[in-house]
């Protein structure tokens, strides 16, 4: 379970909060709101990339406020995927495992497992520059899942995709969520994504966070 209590984010003249949200284990939460309302800032605070002025981020009973992003063990997919452009798809997928000193054999095993699940086995030897938007997002998702995180944070992962690819990706996200039993926080401003994916829906409006159960 993720529990955010009275999170206050301040950077220069920008200020957001205090905000509180709870996502029970295994649920798919979607955070919606207008562009520029602070959705990404909130997500970055939870993942540890942005410092919070006050408040608590508790994951499965552990306070992670002061932990660096590396130790929080979350999966994170930013807006454009942000793949490592100097590495092949396979290297992108096994990056988190390589950092953890996992054996080469296990890395390849996990690579293949993820590639199969996300339908990117034929892309493993390619460089990210030669991938389409949808392919990039699948690789980014696979890379974020490689180290088996409990919590997956997605920052508008489908915003740059066309309608057909978005629909496919929504199915992939739904299947991945169900298969791994992940807790997900998905930031978007698309109603379609929220309608098809959300079990809990949050709406950030003028600095106030509202929540509603949809499933």
């Amino acid at each position: 379970m993720i529990l955010c209590e009275d999170l206050l984010i301040q950077q220069g003249s920008f200020s957001l909060g205090p905000l509180s949200l709870t996502i029970p284990t295994g649920k798919y939460a979607v955070l919606m709101g207008e562009t520029g309302c602070g959705k990404t800032s909130l997500l970055e605070s939870i993942v540890g990339l942005r410092q919070i002025a006050s408040g608590k981020v508790i994951v499965d009973g552990v306070l992670v406020n002061r932990l660096p992003p590396a130790q929080r063990q979350f999966g994170y997919v930013p807006q454009d995927g942000a793949l490592f452009t100097t590495m092949t798809v396979a290297e992108n997928l096994s990056f988190a495992l390589m950092i953890r000193g996992v054996s080469r054999r296990e890395q390849i095993q996990r690579q293949n497992e993820l590639a199969q699940e996300l339908g990117i086995t034929h892309l493993l030897s390619r460089m990210p520059a030669n991938l389409s938007g949808g392919e990039k997002q699948r690789v980014a998702l696979g890379r974020a899942l490689a180290h088996r995180p409990k919590l997956l944070l997605l920052d508008e992962p489908l915003s740059s995709l066309d309608q057909k690819t978005r629909s496919e990706m929504i199915e992939i996200l739904r299947a991945t969520h169900a298969h791994w039993g992940l807790t997900v926080l998905h930031v978007t401003h698309h109603n379609e994504e929220a309608d098809r994916l959300a079990q809990i829906r949050f709406r950030l409006n003028k600095g106030i966070l509202m929540s509603e159960w949809t499933a």
Binding site: V47, L49, Y76, P78, A82, A96, A140, A144
Partner: peptide, 18 residues
């Protein structure tokens, strides 16, 4: 260079130096 890739690396387990 976008700092995003670097940020992703941090969430994947890297220290700043890595």
């Amino acid at each position: 260079l976008s700092p995003r890739t670097e940020n992703v690396a941090l969430t994947l387990g890297c220290t700043r130096a890595q």
